[in-house]
Simulated scan of single mutants.
Amino acid sequence: MAEELELIPVPTRILTDKDDIIEAIEHYTEGKIGPDDLVCSAESVVAITQGRYVRPEDLEISCLAQLCCRFIPDYGSLASPHGMQSLMNVEGKWRVAFALFAGFVGKIFGQSGLFYKWGGEQTAMIDDVTGTMPPFDKCIVYGPGDPYGMAQKMKDKLGCFGAMIADVNDLKRSRVVGVSSGVKGELAAKLLIDNPFGNASQKTPICIIKNYRQYQEKNS
Rank of each mutant, 00 (worst) to 15 (best):
M133F: 12
R55Y: 14
A97W: 04
S201R: 11
P73L: 04
A65P: 09
C68N: 10
F136E: 01
E23Q: 15
A188K: 04
I208L: 06
K190N: 13
D170P: 01
E43P: 00
R55E: 05
N169I: 09
Y28W: 15
I165W: 04
I21N: 02
D194P: 00
Y148H: 15
G51C: 07
V96E: 05
E23H: 10
N195G: 02
P135W: 10
F197M: 09
G149F: 09
L191R: 11
Q214G: 15
L114C: 01
Q152I: 08
K190E: 14
P81C: 10
M125P: 00
D74L: 12
S180C: 06
D36L: 07
P205A: 12
L87I: 10
D137P: 01
E4I: 13
S112D: 05
K117M: 11
E91W: 03
Q214W: 11
Y142F: 15
D20N: 15
K172G: 00
D19I: 06
K157T: 15
Y215I: 09
F115S: 06
P56Q: 08
D146G: 01
A163P: 03
D127P: 00
D36E: 13
V90H: 05
P134C: 07
A189W: 02
S220A: 11
I165E: 01
A200F: 14
Y116F: 11
L158W: 08
C68A: 15
S180R: 03
G178K: 07
G185K: 10
I61G: 07
D156S: 13
S41W: 01
T16D: 03
I14L: 06
C139R: 04
P73E: 10
I72L: 07
M154W: 06
G113H: 08
K153P: 00
S44Y: 00
I165M: 08
E4C: 00
I25N: 09
C139T: 11
E91D: 02
P56K: 06
S86W: 07
V105K: 06
Y215L: 11
E121Y: 08
V177W: 02
N195V: 05
F136G: 01
E6T: 10
E121P: 08
T130R: 12
N169A: 04
G185R: 12
F115D: 00
K93M: 11
A65H: 04
A97G: 05
G76Q: 10
F104W: 13
A151S: 13
T204K: 14
D137Y: 05
G34C: 10
K184E: 13
L67H: 06
K117N: 01
V176C: 06
E23G: 09
N219Q: 15
R52W: 09
G103T: 07
I14C: 10
I126M: 08
V46I: 15
A24G: 01
K93Y: 03
A47Y: 05
S77L: 03
Y53C: 06
V54N: 02
E91V: 08
K138E: 15
L87H: 07
E3R: 12
K32Y: 02
F197W: 05
P205D: 09
G120N: 03
L38S: 03
E186T: 14
W94S: 05
W118K: 08
L100R: 12
V183M: 03
G178M: 03
C139W: 04
G34P: 09
G103I: 07
Q152K: 12
S180G: 09
S62K: 07
A97F: 15
I193L: 15
E91G: 06
V10G: 01
E26H: 12
R55T: 00
D194F: 13
